[in-house]
Amino acid sequence: MTSTVSLSPVEGPAAWRGDVLSQGTEWIYELSDAERTELEEVGRRFVADDPDLRAVTAEQYPVPANAAHLEEVGRQLDSGRGFILVRGLRTEEYGDVLASAIFFVLGLHLGVPMKQNEVGDLLDHVIATSNLTMADGALPSRVRDRLPFHSDSSDVVALMCLRAARSGGSSSLVSGATIYNEVLRRRPDLAPLLFDTWHWDWKAQDKDAPADWYTSPICSWVDGVFSSYAGSSMIESAQRFPDVPRLTEAQREVLALYDEVSQSEGLPIDMDFQPGDVQWLLNYAALHSRTSYEDFPEVERRRHLLRLWLRRDVGRPLVEGFGKNSVVQGRDGNRSGSEDVERISHIANAAAPDLTWGL
Rank of each mutant, 00 (worst) to 15 (best):
65 A>K: 00
47 V>M: 03
147 L>H: 12
40 E>A: 06
297 P>V: 10
73 V>W: 01
198 W>A: 09
193 L>A: 02
207 K>L: 05
91 T>F: 00
353 P>S: 09
256 A>V: 05
2 T>N: 04
63 V>R: 03
212 D>H: 13
212 D>E: 05
109 H>S: 08
5 V>I: 15
16 W>D: 14
332 D>M: 07
305 L>G: 04
139 L>Y: 10
268 P>L: 07
13 P>H: 10
104 F>D: 14
71 E>C: 13
9 P>G: 04
270 D>I: 09
253 E>A: 14
90 R>Y: 01
325 N>E: 15
173 L>V: 10
141 S>M: 09
294 E>P: 13
103 F>D: 14
346 H>S: 11
302 R>P: 01
247 L>S: 00
26 E>N: 15
319 V>D: 03
253 E>W: 03
145 D>C: 08
164 A>K: 15
145 D>F: 03
193 L>D: 04
74 G>L: 08
340 D>K: 13
323 G>T: 11
42 V>M: 02
171 S>A: 10
259 D>H: 13
317 P>R: 04
78 D>V: 12
36 R>P: 12
278 V>A: 06
20 V>L: 14
53 L>E: 09
19 D>N: 15
308 L>T: 07
154 S>R: 03
244 V>S: 08
255 L>E: 11
191 A>H: 06
154 S>M: 06
115 K>M: 12
270 D>H: 15
169 G>Q: 00
18 G>E: 06
202 W>N: 11
329 Q>N: 12
100 S>G: 10
218 I>A: 03
170 S>P: 06
259 D>K: 08
279 Q>A: 13
100 S>I: 09
74 G>M: 01
256 A>G: 12
155 D>R: 05
345 S>L: 00
21 L>G: 04
237 S>Y: 07
192 P>F: 00
320 E>I: 07
55 A>M: 10
42 V>E: 02
25 T>P: 01
275 P>M: 13
315 G>E: 06
261 V>A: 09
294 E>L: 12
110 L>Y: 08
300 E>Q: 12
139 L>G: 15
99 A>C: 06
60 Q>S: 14
228 S>D: 04
267 L>D: 07
341 V>K: 10
96 D>Q: 10
117 N>T: 09
297 P>N: 07
143 V>R: 02
70 L>H: 07
103 F>I: 09
332 D>C: 14
4 T>C: 08
183 V>G: 00
6 S>D: 08
99 A>L: 03
84 I>E: 09
31 L>W: 05
124 D>F: 11
88 G>I: 06
18 G>W: 07
41 E>K: 11
328 V>P: 11
233 S>Q: 11
147 L>E: 13
124 D>M: 11
113 P>A: 03
81 R>H: 07
5 V>F: 05
296 F>C: 08
331 R>Y: 14
346 H>T: 03
204 A>D: 04
338 S>M: 05
178 T>S: 15
326 S>H: 02
91 T>L: 04
239 Q>D: 13
163 R>H: 08
161 C>N: 12
163 R>P: 01
144 R>F: 05
39 L>V: 06
248 T>K: 02
201 D>N: 02
42 V>Y: 10
273 F>N: 11
114 M>I: 11
